[in-house]
Structure formats: C-alpha cells, structure tokens
C-alpha cells in the first residue's frame, strides 16, 4: 500500500495520519512491557524513573532487585515449584493430547464434533469457573492442596493447545506415507514413531510450548487448587501485587519477558519449519 504519485493532499494526510495512529497503537501494545525493563534496574524502591535514571547516571541503576529475587527464599521456593509443576503438566498433556489428535485425524471418528467440543472446553470455560469447580471436586476426592492435583488441573488446561496445534499439523499429513510404511512391513507403533512422529514433531513441540506457558503463567487455578506448598511464581507475583508491591516483581517480570521472547522465537521457527516440510510457503 504505497502512496501513488498522483495522490491528493487529503490522501497524503490520511496516509501519514493512519501510519501515525498505527504507530501509537503499536506503542500502546509494546511500551508497557518494555518500560518495566529499565524500571527493574532502579536503585531505589520506586516504581518510576528517578531523576538520576533520567540523567543516565550509573549509580541510579543497580541489580539489587535481581539479587533479591535470587536470594529471597519465598521467591526461590516459588520458582522451584513452578519448575516442578509446569514440565509434569506439559508432559501429561502432550502425551495424551498427541495420541488423541492422531486418533481424531482418522477419517472415521464417531461423534467427532462432540469429542472435539469436550477436549477444547478447558480453553473456553472461564478460568474462575474451572477453578471453582476443581476446588469443589478436588476437595471431595482429596486432591485439593496437593502437587498431583495442581499438575492434573494444569494438564487439563494445556490439552486444548496440544490438540489444536497437532491436528493442524496433521491436516497436511500425507496418509500414503503411513500406508507405504505399513506396506514395507512396519507395525503401527513403528510407523508412528519412525514416519508420522518426525513429520508432526514441530506441531507437537509448539503444542507442548503452549501447554508449558499455560501452566507456567497460570495463577487462578493454582490459587484455588493448590495450597501454600504449591506456591508458584505467578502466585507469588499475584500476592506481591495485591499486598506489598515490591520492585522485585519488576525484576521477575523482566526475566519472564526474556523467557517469552525465547519461546516466541522457538514457536515461530517451528511453525515455519513445519510449513516448509509440508510443502507450504512460509507465511
């Protein structure tokens, strides 16, 4: 959408005006996330730029909030809990989800729509409702406040993401490859691991990343299903934001932004790779 040379003045004003508006919206999208990065290096206990920071004095910046994060017991415990819960939940949703996605992509699945609706529902139902239901039900069966309970709940939340990404990858899957493999004497299990799995792997991995980030970022469910022993990083941040807000939160937030950038890059690379492998042009 370049500006044609014959454009009128009004069109020119609109053209540049529109870009300025879009620039402002992009600014709105990205600035709040970027602004916490310099603020997290604040040497004072403030949440705004001190005069020293604006003057770019090096004494005004420090790593004290990062030091606090890495030495404070409650933050370290929270980090450790997150690291224990998210991979377990991811593993569960990926293992079960991939299997089911393969099943769902078969040509003859009875009640396909209904099954799909059930499997996707954890993504659609508002978290507070899932949390309420899980709190009631898990306390009935004795899972409330246990590590297993939180992992099961998080695995359920991650499943829709795995199902969606893996079925999307399977849409372009050439079924004659499995037939050829069967024809050459491979059993169904061997066919799955040697032929199908390598081809859908990018989808599985990005589904897994979605499931991981869902569990890693999740706070509502863990607030209700978990107990103090399962306090995760987002939970600790939530408490910090609600009760005594400390700049350590900004240091944690900066670290989490770095992790999201890493994950975003990975997913993007995987998506392109998967599309290339399936003979689609990178979008």
């Amino acid at each position: 959408m370049d500006l044609p040379p014959y454009a009128s003045t009004g069109e020119r004003i609109w053209f540049y005006g529109f870009r300025v508006i879009c620039g402002l919206i992009f600014f709105f999208l990205i600035a709040p996330i970027l602004i916490i990065i310099p603020l997290s290096f604040n040497a004072e206990n403030f949440f705004t730029f001190t005069p020293g920071m604006l003057a770019l004095e090096s004494e005004a910046y420090s790593l004290r909030h990062y030091r606090d994060f890495f030495t404070n017991d409650s933050w370290q415990q929270a980090l450790w809990n997150s690291v224990k819960i998210a991979p377990a939940a991811t593993l569960m949703s990926v293992a079960l989800g991939t299997l089911a996605a393969v099943g769902l992509s078969q040509p003859h699945v009875p009640f396909r729509r209904a099954i799909m609706a059930i499997l996707i529902s954890p993504m659609i139902v508002p978290l507070i409702i899932s949390a309420a239901g899980m709190y009631f039900f898990y306390s009935r069966v004795g899972l409330q406040g246990t590590y297993i309970g939180v992992v099961l709940a998080h695995a359920a939340l991650g499943i829709p993401f795995v199902i969606i990404t893996v079925t999307a990858t399977l849409v372009g899957f050439d079924r004659s490859l499995t037939r050829a493999s069967a024809n050459l004497g491979a059993g169904p299990v061997r066919t799955f691991f040697r032929v199908q799995m390598p081809l859908i792997l990018p989808g599985v991995v990005s589904g897994g990343l979605f499931a991981f980030i869902t569990s890693f970022d999740e706070v509502v469910i863990v607030l209700f299903v978990g107990s103090a022993g399962q306090k995760t990083l987002p939970w600790q941040m939530f408490i910090g934001l609600r009760e005594q807000i400390s700049p350590t939160i900004l240091a944690v937030a900066t670290i989490l932004v770095a992790i999201s950038i890493l994950l975003l890059t990975t997913v993007e690379i995987l998506r392109r790779r998967s599309e290339r492998m399936r003979g689609m042009s990178p979008g």
Binding site: L99, G103, G133, F137, A156, I159
Partner: peptide, 23 residues
C-alpha cells in the same frame, strides 16, 4: 480411532468435566 482418543477423553472428563458438573 476411539481407542486412541479414549485415554485423553477419560482424562478430561475426570479432571475437568466432573469438576464443572460438581459445581
């Protein structure tokens, strides 16, 4: 196909649908 889906379906029904029904 159903055999492949069943474990997950069971999992979601127990960990998610049952809690909603309980609510």
């Amino acid at each position: 196909a159903l055999g492949l889906i069943a474990p997950l379906l069971l999992f979601v029904v127990v960990t998610f649908i049952a809690p909603i029904a309980d609510m």
